[in-house]
Nucleic acid binder design. Structure first.
Lengths: 170, 170
DNA sequence: AGTTTAAGTCAGCCTTGTTGACATTCCAAG
DNA sequence: CTTGGAATGTCAACAAGGCTGACTTAAACT
């Protein structure tokens, strides 16, 4: 452990950017940036009886309308009991509609209602505004690098899920 | 809301990377990457009676040994009751030491003990290993872009805190 | 002397995660 | 046709880690 400063020039490559200190700074940047990333939606949600879990559910239902509960479970990576609690309140409050599957009636297909889309819009607008500002300030090359590093940070399973999502929304 | 696809070429610049779809993909990448980012430490901590909150406290005490409770409070952005619960268990378990301030005896200065540094090492090693792999895969230019975007995503207050941290660890 | 600040503590609440047990419904294979 | 398994939902209980509010102690500042 604590592999010192000497990670550089392993194999002739310039790996000076992989010093302990650089990595720790990356870790901290990730921590603070994620806080900024969630701050605006969190503020909106704190007024209602909702939290970040509701936001995530709403986001992915909006992205893939008609998705099944099981699919959502895999994307979000939580237990069905945890998701169900969130989903139930959203359905009760009329933001999400759960339709019994046509071919497979065990499945429930999830859709946002008019009200659900309205809330999704508010949350999404806030989050995209911050993302847009950050992207604009940083410039296209930085954004490309940002995406590359983030994708490298996911494990293969997660990465596949992300790629599928990207293609479906393209 | 839903400003369509036409965000491009505003003012002659190439702003094609600011379409709704690109922004949504950035949001999703951030969501998945943060999961990857915390996965390894979470796994280590789940074996003990600790969680992510303990990790954060340990991380920042290690980064700024002798820091005060108040300072830590500002960095972490939680209430003192919340931090205190975490800090108390860490002190009880002998991972963190709380020393009364010399000039101002109201203050408590926080340090990691031998055991505390050992746990910090385990957590940090795991997290840095993933960060290192991601950085290596992505390359130096991508890493620079990654950092630029993350910093732009913080608000000014957070950004100042982060810059102070970076300087102290340089 | 009085006020403010740093830290800690108690009590209670909420969200969101977890396990485990169990019911229902329905498809599909034997 | 029956039975096994998959998808979904539900109940109960619990823990982590946020939060607010009220309050104490000690030290420092004015």
């Amino acid at each position: 452990m604590a592999d010192g400063r000497g990670t550089a020039t392993a194999g002739g490559e310039n790996l000076l950017f992989l010093t302990d200190e650089q990595l720790r700074q990356g870790i901290e940047a990730m921590f603070f940036a994620y806080r900024g990333f969630t701050a605006d939606p969190d503020r909106i949600l704190s007024d209602m009886a909702y939290g970040r879990a509701h936001h995530r559910a709403i986001h992915f239902i909006n992205r893939a309308p008609g998705t099944t509960v099981n699919n959502l479970l895999n994307i979000l990576g939580v237990t069905k009991q945890s998701l169900n609690r969130v989903l139930r309140t959203l359905i009760e409050d009329g933001l999400v509609e759960s339709r019994v599957g046509k071919t497979d009636k065990r499945e429930r297909h999830l859709h946002l209602t008019e009200d659900g889309r309205a809330l999704e819009g508010r949350l999404s607008d806030a989050q995209r505004a911050r993302m847009r500002a950050a992207f604009r300030d940083a410039g296209p090359e930085a954004v490309a690098g940002f995406r590359t590093v983030l994708e490298a940070m996911m494990d293969t399973e997660m990465h596949r899920t992300y790629q599928r999502l990207k293609e479906s929304g393209a």
